[in-house]
Design a protein around this nucleic acid. Structure first.
Lengths: 338, 338
DNA sequence: GCCTCCAAGTGTTACGTATAACTTCCCTCC
DNA sequence: GGAGGGAAGTTATACGTAACACTTGGAGGC
């Protein structure tokens, strides 16, 4: 049969179909109406099929000077949420003929390796989570179009930002707890420097401060179940009146709080209420099911991709935070009557 | 806002350093010892730094005819486990100057879109989970080197396979339960056609059949907490003697079983024991903590990558299943005395 | 003084593709 | 019967890089 070992090129297809390489490019690129006759086009397509021809992407990318490929930089840890982000981004990308390549910034210690060295695909642009901020310096070095997810609009050096309306989520949580009668709250905060966590603390403090006689204490923990358990135990065994509710920066922290409370013999929600943020699968796996804020990860990814496409086309993306929704489940109730 | 309209090329660097493009290529490619003097080399490096030069990967890939990039095809659903697989594979890849690109096969209905169209990077090889098997036909069409993860060695059409020793994990679970005195077991099976699940059923049945007076019933559920809850409730309210233990195909199914048992008013492990498989974060978030089989996802990824590198170099990879380890926690105990 | 050898480069080419510019042939219209 | 025009292609080129083959200017050997 044909020459083996090496992949067939468009020239091989051309030879097999008895036409020039240019004709093959026209036909397979779907730009042949009025330039190549239908029978000839069919002959080319048949030859391509017979040879199992696949265009060489490196060559195409070089020729076109663009790759229709975009990099999504995400933290390696919180995988469930960012799987949703990827799904949404990839869907929108596919609609526009783009591909998405993931760069999970390694969760080990130390700064992320250069994402461009690691994700060796040639790229048109980058979407980056602010939680993978250690990779950011590398990225800014390049002049690649960049969209930041959940990043401080003021501190993003001119990059476009797409944000979930976390502040509103925290507002909903706070109103919910205040409405139930809670006044002493423990804030179980993620021990990760990131704007998206800063904003939680700020909003919670502001909302609570607006009501007289309230108090917010803060405990910091790494984002892991064990870390959260330890921090919660320490906070609750400290002197002073016990909080009647724990507001957690995310669902994983809430799962850790559950374990601490169980150890301390406190019942949820009778003795103490707990809230999360994310609405992961975890939230309905634990008992009682967690009152939390649902973040629509896929919608987040879709908006991120759309923003990047806008930047690539020279428009400025339309901002506007993505709404989030409180989901009330069994982990919150009025505080115990003393 | 110096919109440098085009990215600098190696020719620009050459011009800035007063040398030829070839010299730039030699210096930056680290192949210059004895070919370029040290002062000149330093001038080139400085010019590259000044201009912010980054080699065009499309051009390099085209020239070299290889990309040092590998595709990892994973199912979009079970993200935590495959995050670990990615981490391990990426670590080994980096040691050999390779990059890894993820293709999470879309979890929607219908066959996966062509991964090569979607992950538009040019590729040297592919590692694919058998759980993303719907993408497999596309892959086999190409002649790309392929390594399958957790796939039937006999049915993989000659592709190399790397497998966890799931059979041994199930054996350990079964011995554990038999040792505690359990004789009637419910197998909560994943309703997903995949060799890795088939093997669980086969091994469980074989081990139980070796002991007289035992019985295995099977319930099938999609891999979701709600699906597992429904299936478990149905199985436990069916007529006949109630099983004293539930063996789940993975941890997520076990979480669903927990919810069903709580609804039915059955205590774990006093009334009924439960086991999982994976050892996700979920396993220690639920109460009581889950007895399960720890799969070392990172080690799995490392072995997969090593196997692919071997194939790329023309060797045949050394097979041998990856060991797994039973982790006994609070969800298993002797059956209740009647 | 001539040959050889080596260091330190330069000139050139090919990788596979997409497309602008050109050619050829044939048909139509005045 | 010549001008014009469209259909159906082909030829030629550039994208940015890596590497082979070649040049040049001395230093050293005999």
């Amino acid at each position: 049969m044909a020459r083996s070992s090496t992949r067939p090129t468009s020239r091989d297809v051309a030879h097999a179909a008895g036409v020039s390489q240019a004709a093959v490019s026209l036909v397979l690129g779907d730009k042949w109406r009025g330039r190549v006759s239908e029978p000839t086009a069919e002959r080319v397509r048949q030859a391509a099929r017979d040879l199992g021809y696949r265009p060489n992407l490196a060559a195409r990318n070089l020729r076109l000077g663009r790759t229709r490929t975009v990099l999504l930089v995400v933290p390696a840890l919180t995988t469930e949420f960012f799987a949703g982000v990827y799904t949404g981004a990839a869907r929108v990308a596919a609609e526009h003929g783009f591909g998405v390549v993931l760069y999970p910034s390694p969760e080990g210690i130390g700064p992320a390796r250069d994402p461009f060295a690691s994700a060796q695909a040639a790229l048109d642009g980058v979407i980056a989570s602010s939680m993978a901020a250690d990779a950011l310096t590398d990225i800014r070095g390049d002049q690649l179009p960049l969209v930041m997810l959940d990043s401080d609009p003021a501190g993003s050096l001119g990059a476009a930002t797409v944000n979930l309306d976390i502040a509103d989520g925290v507002r909903q949580v706070t109103e919910h707890l205040l409405g139930l009668g809670h006044r002493r709250v423990l804030h179980l905060a993620a021990d990760v420097p990131s704007w998206t966590f800063d904003i939680r603390a700020r909003e919670l403090a502001a909302r609570m401060a607006a009501v007289p006689g309230t108090e917010v204490r803060t405990a910091r923990a790494p984002i892991s179940i064990d870390g959260a358990r330890t921090a919660t135990e320490a906070a609750l065994t400290a002197p002073g009146p016990r909080p009647t509710a724990i507001v957690c920066d995310d669902d994983k922290l809430a799962a850790g709080a559950y374990k601490a409370l169980r150890r301390l013999g406190l019942r949820i929600p009778d003795d103490i209420s707990v809230t999360g943020l994310d609405d992961l699968a975890l939230a309905t796996a634990i008992d009682p099911e967690l009152t939390t804020v649902r973040l629509d990860a896929e919608l987040f990814g879709e908006h991120g991709m759309r923003a990047l496409l806008a930047v690539l086309e020279g428009h400025s993306p339309d901002n506007g935070d993505i709404p989030v929704q409180l989901v009330v489940r069994g982990s919150t109730a009025p505080p115990p009557t003393p």
